[in-house]
C-alpha cells in the first residue's frame, strides 16, 4: 500500500463525524490503526489524493459513499477458518446444542457469509440443520447481498476443502456445491434455514435469543470501550448456558462480561454463559 498519502488523527476525527452526521454510521470507537489504514487504502484505490477531496466526494456523492463504506470495513472471511475451532464445535458444542428443540445461532458481523455456510454444513452433518435457524448479520448491505447468493469464488475452494477436512469433515466437500465457471454455488438445501439481515453492532440492539453466538474477528476492529459495549450486547443475546465464540486472538479479559462466562475451550476461545 502507498504510505505516502498521510492523514492526521484530527482529519480522521473529522471524517468520522462527517460520516456520522450525513449517513448515520458511527466509526468513532473503531480501532484507529486499522481504520486509518482502511481510509488510506480507499483513497489509494479511488485515486483520491487529498483529505479535502475525500470530504468533498463523501459529502456530495451517495454512490461514492456506498463504495467507500463497502471498502472501509474489512469483509475478508473464509470457510472453516481455524479448522480446530470447527472441530471443537463438532465434538463439544454441537452435541449439547442437539438437546434443544430449536437451535438458534447468530453470526454477528458475518461479512459475505462463509462462516454461516460452514456452520450449516456442521449442522447438516450432525442431522440438526432441519431444526436450526441461522442468522447472519452485517452492517454492510453489499455483503449481505452476496451472502444470500451462496456463491464463493472457485479459486478459494482448494483451501476451503483442506480446512473442511482438517475440521473433521468426512464427506466429499464438493457434494455441497455446484461449480459454475469460476464460482461455486452452495446447495439451496444447505441455505434454507439461514437468514441474512442488516444489523449494526455499534448502534442496534438485541433482536433475538440464541444458543450460540459467533462473533469471530470482528471485535479486533473496535477499541476497548466499544469491545466492551458489543460484548454486553452479545451476552444479552445469549440464552442462559448459551455459548459465545470469538476469534482465537480475541479476549474477554478487558470486558465487564468476563465474569458472566465459564471458559469452555481456552484455545479456540469458546465461552459459556453462566446463567
Amino acid at each position: 500500500m502507498m504510505n505516502l498519502t498521510q492523514i492526521t488523527n484530527g482529519e480522521i476525527d473529522e471524517l468520522i463525524s462527517l460520516i456520522r452526521h450525513n449517513y448515520g454510521y458511527d466509526f468513532g470507537d473503531y480501532a484507529r490503526a486499522s481504520f486509518q489504514r482502511r481510509v488510506l487504502r480507499c483513497m489509494d484505490q479511488a485515486g483520491i489524493r487529498s483529505f479535502f477531496d475525500l470530504k468533498y466526494e463523501l459529502t456530495n456523492d451517495q454512490t461514492f459513499f456506498n463504495w467507500f463504506l463497502q471498502n472501509l470495513t474489512v469483509n475478508v472471511t473464509e470457510m472453516f477458518r481455524d479448522p480446530m475451532f470447527y472441530k471443537s464445535l463438532r465434538t463439544t458444542i454441537i452435541p449439547i446444542l442437539a438437546s434443544y428443540p430449536t437451535i438458534k445461532i447468530w453470526h454477528a458481523g458475518c461479512a459475505t457469509g462463509e462462516e454461516v455456510l460452514s456452520m450449516a454444513i456442521l449442522l447438516q452433518e450432525a442431522g440438526l440443520l432441519e431444526r436450526s435457524r441461522l442468522y447472519g448479520t452485517d452492517l454492510n448491505p453489499a455483503n449481505l447481498e452476496r451472502a444470500r447468493q451462496g456463491i464463493v469464488p472457485m479459486q478459494y475452494m482448494k483451501d476451503y476443502t483442506y480446512n473442511y477436512i482438517q475440521s473433521g469433515g468426512k464427506n466429499d466437500f464438493s457434494t455441497y456445491y455446484t461449480a459454475r465457471y469460476d464460482h461455486a454455488i452452495f446447495n439451496k438445501e444447505l441455505r434454507r434455514n439461514i437468514v441474512f439481515s442488516q444489523h449494526n453492532l455499534v448502534t442496534d440492539q438485541v433482536f433475538n435469543e440464541f444458543q450460540l453466538v459467533c462473533c469471530r474477528n470482528v471485535l479486533i476492529y473496535f477499541n476497548r470501550q466499544l469491545q466492551n459495549q458489543v460484548c454486553r450486547l452479545l451476552t444479552d443475546s445469549l440464552a442462559p448456558l448459551g455459548y459465545l465464540a470469538i476469534g482465537m486472538k480475541e479476549s474477554l479479559i478487558f470486558t465487564d462480561v468476563r465474569q458472566q462466562f465459564d471458559v469452555t475451550d481456552s484455545v479456540c476461545r469458546i465461552y459459556r454463559r453462566k446463567t
Binding site: R81, I220, F254
Partner: peptide, 30 residues
C-alpha cells in the same frame, strides 16, 4: 488483540492476522 506492549518482551505476530500498533502502544490485529 489490544494487549499492551511491555518492555523486555518478545512478541511474534499471530498467523493469519496483520499486526498493527495503536497510539496507546497496544497491539491491534487485523
Amino acid at each position: 488483540d489490544k494487549e499492551v506492549i511491555q518492555p523486555n518482551s518478545i512478541y511474534l505476530a499471530p498467523q493469519n492476522y496483520h499486526l498493527l500498533i495503536e497510539a496507546d502502544r497496544c497491539f491491534s490485529l487485523d
